[in-house]
């Protein structure tokens, strides 16, 4: 079975980082999973374009080895509170990452 994000992380969350950006925190389950998956191509900018419509040029990656975590931030496609707002604080956006397959 191919592992998914939820198989290799102990905690995943998402939140606004100001009104124009959203940030995802992936806390991997231990240093082995961090090493094996934090650079995985399946988590690349194209994923955020496909799932959230993000501009791939505005997806940023910040690995934090000391915490076995990866922070991914991207510009919101629509600023907070706009006409098509569905998740004002982006607190539910992480859920769509959970089943991403890491082959």
């Amino acid at each position: 079975m191919m592992p998914t994000v939820k198989d290799v992380c102990r905690h995943v969350r998402s939140k606004n980082a100001g009104p124009f950006w959203v940030t995802f925190d992936l806390f991997f389950d231990g240093p082995e999973n961090f090493q094996a998956y934090h650079n995985h191509p399946a988590l690349g900018p194209d994923l955020f374009h496909r799932l959230f419509g993000a501009d791939p040029a505005l997806v940023r990656y910040y690995p934090v080895p000391g915490l076995n975590m990866l922070k991914i931030s991207h510009a919101r496609t629509s600023p907070q509170g706009g006409v098509v707002e569905r998740d004002m604080h982006c607190g539910q956006q992480y859920v769509r990452l959970m089943d991403v397959e890491l082959e």
Binding site: K15, N16, A17, G18, W21, T23, D25, F27, R60, Y62, V64, G66, L67, M69, K71, S73
Partner: peptide
Amino acid sequence: PHSVSAHMLYENSNPF
């Protein structure tokens, strides 16, 4: 140390 260092990540697009 984990709870404190992890807070640097919160609502912040760059953790460093």
